[in-house]
Each structure stands twice: as structure tokens, then as C-alpha cells.
Design a binder for these strands. Structure first.
Length: 638
RNA sequence: GCCGCUUUAGCUCAGGGGUAGAGCAACCGCCUUGUAAGCGGUAGGUCGUCAGUUCGAAUCCGACAAGCGGCACCA
């Protein structure tokens, strides 16, 4: 006797063990047809799964959120079958469901072409049409290895050896002639796969994610429960593309890149306005938080980098120069050695601490060519960096203050959802384990006392200390690390810096490295995508554009612009001999916050007709009233 | 760095072994204009760079560079 409890609380009795499919059938023919899987005592299983004892059961259909992963995973299998049917000799490796879709990695000598994708997708349609039952089988390990080895599937043999733990049940899913090692669960048949999938792109990917391994060919696809969802997803992608900071950067005349300066930004006047606004903003916030600002050299002797440990641990990322006198200099990839050198000037007392030393330092890192990506990944960037020198006792409070400052600053840009990562000691590191224990403890305890959730990333810290990373998600769903907070006792040690303690002894200060925006270049890029180019008034490079109706008002328009500028508003006039509709269109496309139309009527009464971004018409306003309004908005940063 | 793709006018793109084409922008006229593209004309390119095949290369082959999509790496 088996009692199956359904989600509505009702209980069904069966004389003996039943499958999920049979339970579904007992409820109704429609449900039996719609059943994709079951959830038995909270565990996702195939519809063929046999329930042996009393259990709760939910039938999973395409309507359930859990179904999406199954659909995507099945789509991966169907794609792999299609590929192997079309291109014999291709080896399969792994093919998981991922966010929004799936991929499968193949090993094959000849590369797939974009035309192949269309053919593969067509074959997938056929396999779905064949409606092959998907059957779970349990194989004996050695037999499985022999069978896959016999098919020339070397990667599958490796997967059985390395990934499936001894003693773990080895399941194989079969659909028609095709089968794959897989944990499952899967849909009942290929025909249950909704026709809402699409192959998206080709990519290379290292076997098991290691760049020392051979490169496989990955095919990405997307799959959904219904066609409308697929269409909505494709629409989302298009919308995301529209706010791509590289496109908007060109459209809005913010910056450009050139072949002869890969990874280096040419900031146009409007982009530089944004950049400077961020720096000015940060200066205000830091001054209020007790920081002082300094500046250190860009180019320093190799010996300094040997002392700091960068020469040994960071060499491959460094730009170096050799001058006529044979000295080797390196462009700074980080600001910290400069900051420590600054601290080392003169004698410090415990009364001086904490010293919060900020620097908008431009750092240079030789990033791998394939990593470059618009403003988000460049080789030369400016950090809103600061180094806090404090006593060991002050360290935790300083960490808390930095975390609070970061989160507060992000709010001014509308970033409320910030994730924190704690990265601990890497293999490549300087300093003793005892020191690392202390440093990692300070960071985690600061977060815990503040009640901040975080995710641990073992082994991902900087070579001189553990770090917190503050991660924002951009418009296209990519995560970008912005702020960072690192605690460090190693550089103070290496540079032998100290302070005179209250008991007159020499003590070693602790050093905190922190950046809030991280890279100004990257942060501008993120903001462009975040705002889709519609910058709030306080950041907009051009805050108001005065448009005259005809030549008659040219002098008036110029006078209004002068008045606005005198009031601290970034304003210009478009005096071109175009119709007002044309001018409005042009500057609307430039996403300006305010368009000010001036004709004869406005000229008579020291007024402007105000058109707000988004086609809102405020009607005629007195120029002084308009100035007051904009300045209020700028001050409020909204 | 690795795999694949791309590179034609300021921008978006078409074309394609016999020495280049559209729209928009630019410039010049006309129009003097009231809330998202008024009309006409002119000019603009050694088709990413360097080699090679060919009577002839922007087109075919190769190398390199940059960019794009991923992977790896990372602020």
C-alpha cells in the first residue's frame, strides 16, 4: 500500500508501487499528457520514477518553474543527438542547463560554422517530431566505460572516471539510438520538448574550464516553456543591446577607442564630463569621511616593485620601460607601493592614525587581449583608490566604515542590490598563515557584526591580503566587480613602516586598500548601461539645450545660455537653421534632460518653453525659475 | 592568451577578379520655421595593414592588427 500526498493535501492510495506517470494518469488524461517530471518528497525525478513508499508528489508541467531546467537540459541532449547524427565522429562532453538556456561542448577537428547551427536546429526539430521516449538506464561502471571507449568517446570515459564518484549510481539516458551519461532527470520523450528553443552562438571553451586543456567547441542555445517566452527573451536581448555602453558611447559622443591604443580610452568632452563629475562627487564624500588626497608617480624603478612583491607576483601584467641609462621602470599597476612610500615619509605617531590617504591613480595593467571589453575591461584605468593606515585595533572599525560608505554611495546611483564576496588567501601569496588568519578574521567579523550577507571565495584573494568585493549586475545581466576592500599586513612589513605607540615602542600599522567605484572607466561604462544613456541631471554632460524657433531669437538664445552657464548649468544652444521639429528630434536622440524652446513669445517675457526628457511639456517657465528648479535637482542628485 | 566570426565614406550598411554604391551626417543654396526628420545641389573612400596568386585584387590565398561572441584571466 502506497499513499501519495498531492500538493492540495489530498491523498491517493495505490495497492503497490506506482510511477509518477501512473499517478498523473490517475488524476486525469490532460495532466498525464502534460507531465514532464515529478517532485517526490521535494526531489525532482523522471515521470518513470517508481514511488515505492508513502511520499508527497507534485506533478511538474511546463507551467512550473522547475520545468525550465529540465527543458533546457533536454534541449542540450537533443542538440547533441542532432550534432552526432549530422557530424559523425564528433565527441560529446558536457551539456548543462544554464541561465536562460543551455550549451553543449563538443570535440571535433573541423570547426562548426554559423550555417551548421541552422542545420543542427532543423535536425533538432526532426528529433522532437520523432517523439523518442527518453529512458533511464543504470549501467555498470566498467561496462559503461567500455561502451563509450568503443564509440571513441574518450571524454565521456574521463567523465565517468573523474566526475562520477565510485559507488554513485551511473545513469544513462537513451533517446532512440542515442544515449548519454547523465544524472537526469529528463522529460518523458523528445516530443515533450517545447518548440521554443533557438541556437544562439558558437564559442570555444576549454575542457573542464582549464586553459591548459584542449579547446572544445561550445554551442549555446536558449530554450523556454513556450514560444512567447522565447520571443520575450529575444526582445530582452535586443533591448539590452540598445543600452550597450559601446554603442551609446559613440552615439552620445562620450569616448572612442583606436587600433593603435588597445584597451585605452580616448575620452571626448562629454564623456570626460561624466568622469570628472564622478571624481568630484567622490572627493566630496571622501573629504566628509576623513580622507586626505595625494598623488604618487606613475613610473617607478623596478627595485620598488621587487620590494613590494609585484615583480615576482604580478610581472606578467606590468608594462615596463627601459631608458637610455639602462634603468628598468614599471608603470604602476597598483597605487599601493606609492602610498606606502608616502606613509614612510617622516615619523608617525599612534595619534596620527588612522591616516586615510586617497588617490585618483591611473594604473596600467597588461590584460590579455581577449579580455578587453569597451570601458568595462581596459588596460589603463583610474581607480578611486585609498589606503588606510591604522592600528590593528582600529582595523575592524575602519572596515565597517568603508563598507557603509560604499553601500551609501552606490545608493546615490540607484544600485540597491549589491552582493559582497569575501576572497581568501591564494596560492601565490606573501606573508605567514598567522597573519592571513588575522586579516581574514577582520573582514568576516566586520561583515558579520554589520549583519551583511556575503559569499566566500576561497583562494581568490590578492597576493598581499584577503579582499571584499562589491558586485553590481549590469543591464545585460553580467556581474561586474566595482568596489573592493583589502586588508594587508604584508606590504607594511615589506616596506618596514611603523608608528610610535603610546608606550613609546615602534609598531607596525595595518594597511587597508579600498576602491569604491573601482575603476572610474568601468563605472562610467556601468552607469551608461544602467541609465541607458539617460543620465540624471546632475551627471548629464549637457543639462539643457536652448533651441530657437528661427534666426530672430538667436541673440536671445545665446543670452539665455550665458545666464544658465553663469548659474552653473551645463547648457548650449542649437542655432542651426533647421525646423524646431528637427532640432527636437536631434537632441531628444541625444537623451538630454532639458530642451528649452525659445520663440517670440518667450523672448518677450524672459522665458523658455521647457521640454523634459521623455516628451513631458512643462510649458513656459521664467528663466530664473528654471535655473532654480534645475539647481535643486542637481543638489538632490535625482 | 585560446576558439570562431568580422573589418567597404564621419555613422549604419549593400556590393563583389576588370580599379566602388545607398541612406543619414557634412558642406552650399532655397525656406524663417512653434515641439521627434522641409526641399534641391555638392563633396567625400589607395574597401584594416603587409605580403602572395593573377595580364589585372577591394574581391581569391596567407600573415599580422583591431573589434565582436565566448573560454581562460580580472577592477
Amino acid at each position: 500500500m502506497v499513499n501519495v500526498t498531492l500538493p492540495d493535501g489530498s491523498v491517493r492510495r495505490f495497492d503497490s508501487a506506482v510511477t509518477v506517470a501512473e499517478v498523473a494518469a490517475s488524476i486525469g488524461a490532460g495532466l498525464a499528457k502534460a507531465a514532464l517530471a515529478g517532485k517526490v518528497d521535494g526531489r525532482l525525478v523522471d515521470t518513470s520514477h517508481r514511488i515505492e513508499q508513502d511520499a508527497t508528489l507534485a506533478i511538474v508541467t511546463a507551467k512550473d518553474a522547475e520545468a525550465l531546467d529540465l527543458i533546457r537540459h533536454d534541449a542540450a541532449h537533443v542538440m547533441a543527438q542532432a550534432v552526432q547524427e549530422l557530424y559523425p565522429g564528433t565527441q560529446v562532453t558536457i551539456g548543462p542547463a544554464i541561465e536562460d538556456g543551455f550549451y553543449y561542448d563538443f570535440a571535433r577537428d573541423t570547426p562548426f560554422t554559423p550555417e551548421d547551427l541552422a542545420a543542427i536546429e532543423k535536425r533538432m526539430d526532426e528529433i522532437v517530431k520523432r517523439d523518442l521516449p527518453i529512458v533511464r538506464e543504470v549501467w555498470e561502471r566498467e561496462t559503461a566505460k567500455k561502451i563509450f571507449a568503443g564509440k571513441g568517446e574518450d571524454y565521456k570515459v574521463q567523465i565517468i572516471d573523474d566526475i562520477i564518484a565510485p559507488g554513485e549510481e551511473l545513469s544513462v539516458y537513451r533517446q532512440g539510438d542515442w544515449f548519454d551519461v547523465c544524472r537526469g532527470p529528463h522529460l518523458p520523450s523528445t516530443g515533450k520538448l517545447p518548440k521554443a528553443y533557438k541556437l544562439m552562438k558558437l564559442a570555444g571553451a576549454y575542457w573542464r574550464g582549464d586553459s591548459k586543456n584542449p579547446m572544445l567547441q561550445r554551442i549555446y542555445g536558449t530554450a523556454w516553456a513556450k514560444k512567447e517566452d522565447l520571443e520575450a527573451y529575444l526582445f530582452r536581448l535586443e533591448e539590452a543591446e540598445k543600452r550597450d555602453h559601446r554603442k551609446l558611447g559613440q552615439l552620445l559622443d562620450l569616448f572612442h577607442f583606436q587600433d593603435n591604443a588597445p584597451g585605452a580610452v580616448f575620452w571626448h568632452a562629454k564623456g570626460w564630463s561624466l568622469f570628472q563629475d564622478l571624481i568630484n562627487y567622490m572627493r566630496q564624500r571622501q573629504a566628509a569621511a576623513g580622507y586626505e588626497e595625494v598623488n604618487t608617480p606613475d613610473l617607478m624603478d623596478r627595485a620598488l616593485w621587487e620590494l613590494s612583491g609585484h615583480w615576482l607576483n604580478y610581472r606578467e601584467h606590468m608594462f615596463t620601460t627601459q631608458t637610455e641609462d639602462e634603468r628598468v621602470f614599471a608603470l604602476k599597476p597598483m597605487n599601493c607601493p606609492g602610498a606606502v612610500s608616502m606613509y614612510a615619509q617622516g615619523i608617525k605617531s599612534y595619534r596620527d592614525l588612522p591616516i586615510r590617504m586617497a588617490e585618483f591613480g591611473k594604473v596600467h595593467r597588461y590584460e590579455p587581449s581577449g579580455a578587453l571589453h569597451g570601458l568595462l575591461r581596459v588596460r589603463h584605468f583610474t581607480q578611486d583608490d585609498a589606503h588606510i593606515f591604522c592600528t590593528e585595533e582600529q582595523m575592524e572599525q575602519e572596515c565597517k566604515d568603508v563598507v557603509a560608505l560604499i553601500l551609501d554611495i552606490y545608493k546615490d546611483f540607484g544600485f540597491e542590490d549589491v552582493r559582497i564576496k569575501l576572497s581568501t588567501r591564494p596560492d601565490n601569496r606573501i606573508g605567514s598563515d598567522a597573519v592571513w588568519d588575522k586579516l581574514e578574521g577582520a573582514l568576516s567579523s566586520a561583515l558579520e557584526h554589520m549583519g551583511m550577507p556575503y559569499v566566500l571565495f576561497p583562494g581568490e584573494g590578492a597576493f598581499y591580503g584577503p579582499k571584499l568585493e562589491f558586485v553590481l549586475r549590469d543591464a545585460i545581466g553580467r556581474d561586474w566587480q566595482c568596489g573592493t576592500l583589502q586588508v594587508d599586513m604584508n606590504l607594511p612589513e615589506r616596506f618596514d613602516i611603523s608608528y610610535i605607540a603610546a608606550d613609546n615602542s615602534h609598531k607596525r600599522p595595518v594597511m587597508l586598500h579600498r576602491a569604491l567605484f573601482g575603476s572610474l572607466e568601468r563605472f562610467v561604462g556601468i552607469l551608461i548601461e544602467h541609465y541607458a544613456g539617460n543620465f540624471p541631471v546632475w551627471l548629464a554632460p549637457v543639462q539643457a539645450m536652448v533651441l530657437n524657433i528661427s534666426d530672430k531669437q538667436a541673440a536671445y538664445a545665446t543670452e539665455v545660455v550665458a545666464k544658465l552657464r553663469a548659474a552653473g548649468i551645463r547648457a548650449s544652444a542649437d542655432l542651426s537653421n533647421n525646423k524646431i521639429t528637427y532640432k527636437i528630434r536631434e537632441h531628444s536622440l541625444q537623451k538630454l534632460p532639458y530642451l528649452l524652446v525659445v520663440g517670440d513669445k518667450e523672448m518677450e517675457s524672459w522665458a523658455v518653453s521647457v521640454r523634459v526628457r521623455g516628451n513631458q511639456d512643462l510649458g513656459a517657465l521664467n528663466v530664473d525659475d528654471f535655473i532654480a528648479r534645475v539647481n535643486t535637482e542637481i543638489r538632490a542628485r535625482n
